[in-house]
C-alpha cells in the first residue's frame, strides 16, 4: 500500500489540522457515518445498470460537495480497481452465456461482462461515498462519533490509539529504513533481504511494546480510568436535517429506479 502515500503525504489527518470545509464538512459526524452505511447497504442491493450509474453519479456529487482534491481521491479509488481487476477480467470467461468473442478457446459472455461491470460500479460507488462522507472527518471526531453511537468503549479506545500511533510508528519505520539505506541495504529477492526485513518488523514490534509501556505509565499518572471524555457535544442542526431528508429521498429514488428497470 506504500504506493498510495506519496512523498510528504501523511497517513491520516493530524488532530487539529485544518479541516476540509464545504457542504459535507459542516454536517454532524453521526449523520455522515449513518449516511455512508445506508448508502452502502442500498447500493449493494442494486443490480440494474441504470440504478448503479445513478448511484455512481450520487457518489461523484458527494465528492464534489466534500471539496476533496479530485485527482488524489480518484487515484486512490483506481488503486482499489487495480486489486480487483483480475477477478473482474475472469468473470466474462467463467459465467456461461451469449458469447462476445473467444480467446485461446475460452468464450467471453455478455452476462459475465455485465456482472463484472455491475461489481465494479458497486464497489467504486460505495468506497467513494465512504471516503467522502467519513474519510474527510478528523480521526478523533470519528472516534467520538462512534462512541456516541454506542460502539463499545474499548473498541473506540483501540481505534483512537491506532489512529494516534500509525503516524508515529510510520515515522519510526522510515527512520529504520533510512538507517538501513545508509548502510548500503538494497532490497532484492534473497535471504539477506528477507532476514533484514524480518528483523526490521521485529525491531518495530519490540519498540512498539516498549512505547506502549511508557504510554500506560503516562496515562495512569494522569488518572486514566478507561472513560472517554468528549471535548464537545454533537447536536443536530437544521442543515443536518435537510441533508438527511435529501439523502433519504435520493436512496428511495435509487430503489425506485432499480424496481422500474428490473
Amino acid at each position: 500500500m506504500a504506493h498510495v502515500l506519496e512523498q510528504g503525504d501523511t497517513t491520516l489527518t493530524e488532530t487539529g489540522a485544518a479541516q476540509v470545509s464545504g457542504l459535507i464538512g459542516s454536517l454532524d459526524p453521526r449523520i455522515r457515518i449513518l449516511a455512508a452505511i445506508g448508502f452502502g447497504i442500498v447500493v449493494v442491493g442494486l443490480s440494474s445498470l441504470n440504478a448503479l450509474c445513478a448511484a455512481m453519479l450520487l457518489s461523484a456529487a458527494l465528492l464534489w460537495a466534500s471539496r476533496l482534491p479530485l485527482g488524489p481521491t480518484l487515484k486512490r479509488m483506481a488503486m482499489m480497481d487495480g486489486f480487483i481487476i483480475f477477478m473482474l477480467v475472469l468473470l466474462p470467461f467463467s459465467i456461461p452465456g451469449d458469447p462476445i468473442f473467444t480467446l485461446w478457446g475460452f468464450a467471453a459472455s455478455w452476462q459475465g461482462l455485465w456482472r463484472a461491470v455491475e461489481i465494479a460500479l458497486t464497489a467504486n460507488a460505495v468506497i467513494l461515498a465512504l471516503m467522502t462522507l467519513v474519510g474527510t472527518m478528523e480521526p478523533v471526531t470519528l472516534g467520538h462519533a462512534l462512541y456516541k453511537m454506542r460502539v463499545p468503549e474499548i473498541l473506540v479506545h483501540l481505534l483512537m490509539f491506532t489512529i494516534r500511533y500509525i503516524e508515529v510508528l510510520r515515522e519510526e519505520y522510515l527512520r529504520l529504513r533510512s538507517a538501513m539505506k545508509v548502510r548500503g541495504f538494497r532490497p532484492g529477492t534473497n535471504w539477506h533481504t528477507y532476514r533484514s526485513f524480518g528483523y526490521l518488523v521485529g525491531m518495530m514490534l519490540v519498540r512498539a511494546i516498549e512505547r506502549s509501556e511508557r504510554i500506560l505509565g503516562a496515562m495512569k499518572c494522569r488518572g486514566f480510568s478507561g472513560r472517554i471524555y468528549l471535548l464537545k457535544d454533537f447536536a443536530l442542526t437544521a442543515a443536518d436535517r435537510r441533508f438527511s431528508l435529501i439523502f433519504v429521498i435520493a436512496m428511495a429514488l435509487l430503489i425506485c429506479l432499480e424496481l422500474a428497470w428490473r
Binding site: 506504500a2 483512537m160 490509539f161 532490497p187 526485513f197 518495530m204 506502549s212
Partner: peptide, 28 residues
C-alpha cells in the same frame, strides 16, 4: 474485547498501529 483489560489497551492499540504500518511495507 473481553480479553482486553484497561492495562492492555495501550499495548493492543500500539500493536494494532504497528500491523497497519507493516502493511505499508513492500518486499521484493
Amino acid at each position: 474485547l473481553r480479553s482486553l483489560t484497561l492495562e492492555r489497551i495501550p499495548t493492543a492499540g500500539v500493536l494494532s498501529a504497528s500491523f497497519f504500518v507493516a502493511s505499508l511495507i513492500y518486499v521484493p
